[in-house]
């Protein structure tokens, strides 16, 4: 991917994050996403009905990579089924960890395809996925 395009997409999603709002609606599963090594801390709200991720929102304070990664993840997954989402998550994680992945599935999230070169930022890109996985687990448990 072109370096400038990559930067533009990340900065755009950082400075104008999509779906960023606090949700009080009790139908949403609310989970916290944080990791020990950094100060990012976001809440993710997921509305899952009939195995479809009908809506996702997030709130909180995080760095450019975490915020943009969350914004992009949410846009890619709204409307997807639980199993499609799991596939997406697995592909994204594989990409960040330098394992084999299907790049047809990830759309704009491909901007993080070279994040592994900055070891200390891998966790930033992965941050929203920690929360999303928790939310899906909660949904499946119920």
């Amino acid at each position: 991917m072109d370096e400038n395009l990559r930067r533009d997409i990340i900065l755009d999603n950082y400075q104008n994050p999509r779906n960023k709002e606090i949700v009080l609606d009790k139908r949403y599963i609310k989970v916290n996403s944080n990791n020990e090594s950094c100060i990012d801390n976001i809440d993710i709200y997921v509305l899952i009905e009939d195995d479809i991720l009908k809506d996702i929102k997030f709130s909180g304070e995080a760095c450019a990579i975490s915020t943009s990664s969350t914004s992009i993840m949410i846009q890619n997954l709204i409307g997807k089924s639980v199993s499609e989402s799991k596939m997406y998550i697995e592909n994204f994680e594989n990409m960040v960890q330098e394992l084999a992945y299907d790049n047809n599935l990830l759309n704009e999230a491909l901007v993080y395809s070279e994040i592994y070169k900055q070891g200390n930022r891998k966790n930033c890109a992965l941050l929203p996925y920690i929360g999303l996985k928790k939310a899906i687990k909660q949904y499946e448990k119920n």
Binding site: C38, I39, E61, A62, C63, A64, T67, Q118, N120, R121
Partner: peptide, 8 residues
Amino acid sequence: IFSQDVAY
């Protein structure tokens, strides 16, 4: 700008 981004 988030402090961690400036630190990076």
